[in-house]
Simulated scan of single mutants.
Amino acid sequence: MKPNRTEWQKRCTFNGFCKKVLKNEAIDAFRESRTRRKHEVVFSELTPQEEGRLYAYDHYFEEQEGFQVAGKWITPKLRAEALRALPEEKRQAVSLYYFFGMNNVEITGLMKIPRSTVQYRRTSSFELLKRYLEERAGE
């Protein structure tokens, strides 16, 4: 089947339109790229002062003093170290329960372990945290 003359003209017109749109988009992309390159700076060419403005240093642990319990000084840094000292599976159970507000059933579904295991990991973690803090508090 041969297309009739008007269909052929429509195809040619549409093809011409598509080519013009693609050409104009390519020109716009090139111009935008050229404009962006004028304003970009390579990191290796930054001065130390300019580099310093690109990030912020969090002094959270340095500024907070902590608190005292049973004559022992507990700092936020020490608490973070104690959590990091826990085995991964225990740290995960404690974090999900206390920091993410999940209950044992939700943790069981997420970690795919029995509920008694979740409870055991949480309670045994407190013993480990307690020992860690008692040994290192006040240092």
Rank of each mutant, 00 (worst) to 15 (best):
K2R: 12
P3F: 09
T6E: 13
W8F: 11
W8N: 13
R11S: 10
T13I: 12
T13K: 15
F14Q: 15
F14C: 14
N15S: 12
N15M: 13
G16T: 09
G16L: 13
F17C: 11
C18F: 10
C18E: 14
C18G: 09
K19V: 00
K19Y: 02
K19L: 05
K23N: 14
N24A: 13
D28L: 00
D28V: 00
F30M: 11
E32I: 07
S33M: 14
R34C: 06
V41L: 07
S44W: 00
S44R: 04
S44Y: 00
S44A: 04
L46K: 06
T47S: 08
T47H: 04
P48F: 00
P48W: 00
E50V: 01
E50F: 03
G52P: 03
G52F: 01
G52T: 04
R53C: 10
R53K: 14
R53L: 12
A56R: 13
Y57L: 14
Y57D: 15
Y60M: 08
Y60G: 05
F61T: 11
F61S: 10
E62W: 03
E62T: 04
E65C: 07
F67I: 08
A70C: 12
K72I: 03
W73A: 11
I74C: 02
I74S: 05
I74P: 02
T75D: 01
P76A: 02
K77T: 05
L78N: 01
L78I: 00
R79H: 09
R79Y: 06
A80M: 12
E81R: 09
R84Y: 06
A85M: 03
A85N: 10
A85I: 01
L86Y: 00
P87L: 00
E89Y: 08
R91M: 02
R91G: 02
A93W: 01
S95P: 06
G101A: 00
G101H: 02
M102G: 02
N103I: 00
N104A: 09
N104P: 04
N104Q: 11
E106R: 04
I107M: 02
I107N: 03
I107A: 03
I107F: 02
T108N: 07
G109P: 11
G109A: 12
L110G: 11
M111K: 09
K112M: 11
I113H: 09
R115E: 13
S116Q: 13
V118E: 06
Q119F: 11
R122N: 14
T123H: 15
T123Y: 15
S125F: 01
S125Y: 03
F126S: 12
F126T: 10
F126M: 13
E127C: 03
L128N: 08
L128V: 06
L128E: 09
L128Q: 06
Y132S: 04
E135K: 13
R136P: 03
A137Y: 01
A137E: 02
E139T: 03
